[in-house]
């Protein structure tokens, strides 16, 4: 059936079975492959997207459920090449390594930023407890989110080199 929704600020229309997984519709039908599949059962959070501002696992959501709603994926975090503060913070604090979990973490962190501008480190950990990372030990992810939330995304260090590398 035809299902319409808003993906990252753009209206989209797909022809899909109503019970198709939102994740498959995003990745296969709309070729928005930023959201990843790590487990397919809502445990790893690599497919985290926001539906009407709420973080959900796209592998557990039937596409019919987002009909007429706003869906935000990692592709929608940056606008016109300008990165979201959380994306900048992940770059500067080493929050991404292999990167497969990163889109889900960023989306979950963006939700936290919108809802709780002054969380403690423990609240950051709680907000991200639905996302699994195997590379970082979470330390730098928590550092990054805490920095982004406090508006201190600019890391100390050689600013020119950092900028040079970021343009790659």
């Amino acid at each position: 059936m035809k299902i319409d929704f808003d993906l990252n600020g753009t209206p989209v229309s797909v022809d899909a079975p109503p019970m198709a997984r939102l994740l498959d519709v995003l990745r296969e039908d709309l070729r928005a492959t930023g959201s990843k599949e790590g487990c397919g059962e809502g445990e790893c959070g690599a497919c985290t997207v926001l539906i009407e501002g709420r973080a959900v696992n796209a592998c557990l959501v039937p596409v019919i459920q987002v009909s007429g709603q706003r869906v935000l994926t990692v592709e929608g975090l940056s606008r016109d090449e300008v990165l979201h503060p959380v994306q900048v913070a992940f770059l500067e604090h080493g929050g991404t390594q292999c990167g497969i979990c990163t889109p889900g973490f960023l989306v979950a962190a963006a939700e936290l930023l919108a809802k709780n501008p002054t969380p403690t480190r423990i609240e950051v950990r709680e907000a991200l407890a639905g996302n699994l990372c195997r590379c970082t030990g979470y330390q730098k992810i928590v550092d990054a989110v805490a920095a982004a939330l406090s508006g201190a995304a600019e890391a100390p260090g050689d600013a020119d080199l950092d900028r040079a590398s970021r343009t790659c």
Partner: peptide, 14 residues
């Protein structure tokens, strides 16, 4: 020094 990882931007933008 903390050079930002070269593949970082591609990874944080999906």
């Amino acid at each position: 020094h903390d050079i930002v990882r070269v593949d970082g931007r591609a990874k944080v933008t999906g």
